[in-house]
Design a binder for these strands. Structure first.
Lengths: 374, 374
DNA sequence: TCCGCGTGCTGAACCGATTCAACAATCTTC
DNA sequence: GAAGATTGTTGAATCGGTTCAGCACGCGGA
């Protein structure tokens, strides 16, 4: 009878013979083996392993030689159990359908893994599904000693659980974002400067009728871009109407929808600025479907500079974000925090515009007052 | 003098100021605490935790209540140390520049993570760089008790290290591939059937001059597709010349290059079949640059059906691969193997063609003999 | 009444490392 | 030459679980 309905942890129903004759690691060489082979105590071997300076040069090399001869490899479960650290970091992805397949997150993760490995850390992958958070598994990760720290990707201000990460007990760092919901460490791209470059460029090309395909307002980077958009257009003497802006949800479909909405109210739009490449690509796809020519009829510009963006038709003008560097630096700072760093982390990495084929001079270099559509 | 390089224990060391005062987990509730609070032995608590049927219903619920009251969470380092399993799986990515940002791998990982989490497993991310393999870190992962098993992504026949994974000692499973270099478990898409559908479709549209943009010959799936291509074209009475086939390295750039090469020898190509979507997209980009119209002048067809493929211009006709299902099933089978499965795993998941806008009837439904160019 | 057996629980060994207190041997220093 | 400091090593406790052998108890059968 199997009354055990509840998901029991690493369990196997015991008491039953003739079962689970699974993978059985043959007993490996351990500290004691090395100690006796080298005629020293286990304490000595351990200290050699950790390069403790109190061990003499002679003993050190002798023990090390024995370790090599026996092919000794420390059991890291035992190491972590008795030491303070696991040397594992978790990467949290947001609860989005294709989060893993999203090149934006991929580039971040790439930077993270590279740096983490170089520093002797392993990376554990987690997706922050609602159930996961509700069961407080994000803290369990620490409490049960899975990880030393967490890198948070794709966060925003509605993520209440961000408040749970107390810096000294549950070290966490926000990657490429700065949610106001909690006062956490962060490392991110300079979206403001990127947006400034985009708008300077578009305005210089003669564009005034510029639509903004943005992300949700709860995402700090989306707000930043929007703020720059509004101030720059105002500065150029353009009155901003709400219908010139639409939420594209950071997806291709969303980008296309947002583009359609804006065009519906403003058929004379001459350029679109999108909050990321996926939305820009979605918009371009729609425009192509509608028979509009990018960039002759309409210019489109994105954010991210995914590898991919150079290969759509036409190739996409976009703001290059140093995502792998962000990932690497985030990893560095998180590890510092784990080892006792006190000062908060607030890093901003610079961005630059990459001009390709999706942008061109505005048809007729417009001037001055634009009459509001409707 | 900073003799204290070694991290100090979780105890408050007031003695020495100014040193690694890092993250300090406050002593958590442990088995002994629960045992004494419930007035039973630690053995009993452990057995409750593992749903051991030898514990009476009464004791079970009583202990469980105490655990809840104290907020007890088992330390999984201790659990894994004394049990046989870590409940962690590693995902190996190949040594490619943008491996993490590649949506193909992303979809696989997505399926893997989902299933793994549902089964109580954690996922660890590794990239199989040459140095990593040379230092035998892929085995160290087992020897040092990091993981119970490994899922191998992006493998091919030059990966000699695949031979190292002895099924009973180092459980590993190849995902969406079947390298002949080692006789390992695998779960993959039915590329053969996919290729058959592609060629039937193209031939039915009247295409005869079909170029193949393939991957490297050491990759089994690339060989499979090529084999089908050759036999189907032969069957349609088309003589195959080497110059009709080129290696696109599974990248956009490679796809573009391969496309250029083939066109150089065969300017009258009317269709391209690519081994994945990225190469197809690269080819389409080149064709766009050359002023050729897809699909009017040339049809292009891919493999993968990445989310993305629906949003390039024109949207891409491609073979849908059930990558998340492959990932999920791979995870299932690997876990079976870890727990003692004896029979080899050889799974094939079915694929189907998704027709979009990058394919159309051949200009002039060609017939019979094609004179070899050059 | 005695034996054997199944049930429910316990004590203690064990997994494999880290680290502290203690100590012996050698080196300073006066 | 004795006291004190330094250097190098060790035994034992500890981290927090799992598991096995064994014990107490109640019960049915001979």
């Amino acid at each position: 009878m199997r009354q055990a309905d509840e998901p029991n942890p690493p369990v196997r129903a015991d008491a039953d013979p003739a079962e689970d004759v699974g993978f059985r690691p043959k007993r490996a060489v351990n500290l004691r083996d090395v100690a006796s082979a080298a005629s020293v105590s286990v304490a000595t071997v351990s200290m050699v392993l950790n390069n403790n300076p109190r061990i003499s040069r002679a003993t050190h090399t002798r023990v090390q030689r024995v370790m090599e001869k026996l092919g000794y490899q420390p059991n890291r479960l035992a190491q972590s159990l008795s030491s303070k650290y696991t040397n594992v970091l978790a990467v949290f992805l947001p609860d989005l359908r294709h989060a893993f397949a999203d090149a934006y997150f991929g580039e971040l993760i790439s930077g993270i893994c590279d740096r983490a490995n170089r520093l002797g850390y392993k990376i554990m992958l987690e997706q922050a599904k609602p159930a996961f958070i509700k069961e407080r598994k994000h803290l369990e990760l620490f409490d049960r000693r899975f990880v030393d720290g967490i890198l948070l990707l794709g966060t925003h201000d509605l993520h209440e659980h961000l408040k749970d990460f107390d810096p000294t007990t549950y070290p966490a760092l926000v990657v490429d974002n700065n949610p106001v919901v909690a006062d956490l460490d962060y490392v991110m791209c300079d979206y403001e400067s990127g947006a400034v470059q985009v708008l300077n460029y578009l305005i210089q090309l003669g564009h005034r009728k510029i639509g903004l395909i943005t992300g949700a307002a709860e995402i700090s980077t989306a707000r930043t871009v929007r703020k720059v958009y509004e101030s720059k257009l105002n500065q150029a003497g353009v009155e901003i109407i709400d219908t010139m802006i639409a939420d594209g949800k950071f997806t291709e479909e969303g980008g296309a929808d947002a583009c359609r909405q804006i065009l519906h109210h403003h058929p004379d739009m001459s350029a679109f600025m999108a909050g990321n490449d996926k939305m820009a690509i979605g918009a371009m796809h729609l425009l192509h479907r509608m028979g509009k020519d990018v960039p002759k009829d309409i210019s489109v510009i994105g954010f991210d500079d995914l590898h991919h963006a150079a290969f759509v038709n036409p190739s996409l003008t976009t703001v290059h974000l140093p995502l792998d560097q962000v990932g690497a630096m985030a990893t560095d700072r998180l590890i510092e925090r784990i080892h006792g760093r006190r000062e908060p982390v607030r890093e901003l990495l610079s961005t630059h515009l990459v001009v390709r084929d999706s942008t061109a001079m505005a048809r007729n270099s417009v001037r001055g007052e634009s009459e509001s559509a409707d």
